[in-house]
């Protein structure tokens, strides 16, 4: 047992093989239906932009996926288990940061 408040730790952090499994799990759990292909955002927020509505630590992201959040994020802990949540987080951490596209680069019409 961990004392309350102890940060959680991703056992797979940085593992490229696990990240690929996480990409498959992201699709098979219909995460892409809300967060978009490549987690780039749809009705749910972009998950690859390095910004986090409910905090970006491993502990915060674990809680978001395991227990769900208001505004429609379901609790997936009961479906994928703690291990599955870490696999998903490993995938999200592997996403490349989006390119910064300044307004001036957009075409004018």
């Amino acid at each position: 047992m961990l004392p309350p408040g102890t940060p959680l730790h991703n056992p797979y952090g940085g593992d490229a093989t696990v990240a690929r499994a996480g990409a498959a799990l992201f699709t098979s759990m219909n995460c892409d239906g809300c967060h978009g292909a490549d987690a780039s955002g749809w009705v749910g927020p972009d998950l690859g932009d390095g910004r986090w509505r409910y905090g970006g630590s491993d502990t915060d992201v674990f809680r978001s996926i395991f227990y769900g959040r208001p505004k429609g994020m379901p609790a997936f802990g009961g479906v994928v288990g703690a291990d599955g949540v870490w696999v998903l987080i490993t995938y999200l951490r592997s996403l490349p940061a989006p390119a910064d596209e300044p307004t001036e680069s957009w075409p004018q019409r």
């Binding site: 780039s40 955002g41 749809w42 009705v43 972009d46 910004r51 509505r53 957009w106």
Partner: peptide
Amino acid sequence: ALLAGDTRSDDPADMRAPADFMKDIAR
């Protein structure tokens, strides 16, 4: 709003690239 998510300004935790078929709508 979804396809051109860069028209949003109310959520600092959700930054998106412009939709590639109309990047300039947020102008």
